[in-house]
Computed example of a mutant assay.
Amino acid sequence: MTDRLMLLDSASLYFRAFFGVPSVSAPDGTPVNAVRGFLDIIAKLVSTYDPGSVVACWDDDWRPAWRVALIPTYKAHRVTETVPGGRDVEEVPDALTAQVPLIRETLAVLGIPIAGASGYEADDVIGTLTARAGGPVDVVTGDRDLFQLVDDDRGVRVVYTARGMSNLEVVTDDVIVGKYGVHAAQYADFATLRGDASDGLPGVSGVGEKSAATLLQTHGTLDGVRAAAHAGTGMTARISTRIVDAAPYLEVAPEVVQVAREAPVDAAPGPLGPVTDEQRRAAEEFATTWGLSAPMARALNALAAAAR
């Protein structure tokens, strides 16, 4: 067993499982393809990276009001309705929505803790637990926003799932520099300038990935870029004007893009313990009920091996 903490971006993984595993149902007809895929993802991750502890990080609020107050378009395109009390409902396939409680039960029988924080996204939970960690961390996600957490000196890396579970990529600072031309410590500023349509972040008009990278290579930080734009130095007049004109956005966007490091997360990750006979019996009973015996066995065996 290593001392490496593994933090799961749970929603990212169960969406991947749902769309990656063909439709399959439990004996009572309930769809369980996402649960099956999630179990196999856990087995693959634990077997491959041998973590000392694992935490499933959860979106207690997928679209926090404080982020929306700063940028109203934040994730707005994903809202299907707003229910009484002002809570926004995210667009999620019904067959997946039905499986999310089962995924939480699955994590419980496996002994993997779930961590969330009221008013915060899973990204913020991950950022907070990473900041608290005394040792190395693997962040498992398909969301490149979390590249900002990569820290080679601390051994913080991202296990990136965007190309599929059979083609996982371990993202370090060198990888980010190779992909984008900026360091991990600059990634949030890079994302702010570039914007992200998938999150409803407009970015600075006319500034794409290449120009955002060039600006940060030259000026170091977003503050440096803005200062140079106001001085009219180190960039074209067109880009300078666009950055100055984007001042209202650039005043608030960094707080939206930056992952929180001090969210009120009530979790203290502990080491993986041995899989007890009682735990195995409970997990196998749960798996039999839902037609998940084979993937449950794979996950249990991976956890048992990692705990040795």
Rank of each mutant, 00 (worst) to 15 (best):
D173H: 06
A115R: 02
A191F: 07
R154N: 09
D123P: 03
G135A: 15
F190C: 13
G142T: 05
G206L: 13
A185S: 14
S118T: 15
V182F: 08
R144W: 01
P93W: 13
D199C: 08
V175T: 15
L102Y: 02
I103R: 05
A185E: 05
D152W: 04
V125M: 04
F190T: 07
L96C: 14
L168P: 07
S198C: 07
G178E: 14
L149Y: 04
L193V: 10
I176S: 09
D153G: 12
D196F: 07
G127I: 04
Q186F: 04
V204Y: 07
T97H: 13
D152R: 10
D174Q: 14
I114W: 01
P202T: 12
L96I: 10
E169I: 14
A162M: 06
A108F: 00
T161I: 11
D151C: 08
G181K: 05
V109G: 09
D189V: 10
Q186H: 08
T128E: 03
P101K: 10
L146A: 09
D124K: 03
S118N: 10
V204W: 06
V109P: 03
T130R: 13
G142W: 02
D173G: 15
D94H: 10
Y160W: 15
R104W: 00
R194E: 10
D174S: 14
V158R: 10
F190N: 08
T172E: 13
L96A: 12
S118M: 11
V159F: 03
V92I: 15
D174Y: 01
G164Y: 00
L193C: 14
A108R: 08
Y187L: 10
V100G: 03
G164F: 01
S198Y: 05
T141H: 05
P202Y: 13
G203Y: 07
P202G: 13
M165G: 02
L129Y: 02
E169V: 15
V177F: 12
V139P: 04
L193M: 14
V125T: 06
G116W: 00
I112L: 12
F147N: 12
G178T: 11
G116L: 02
A117P: 00
G203F: 09
A191Y: 07
G111S: 09
V137H: 04
T106F: 00
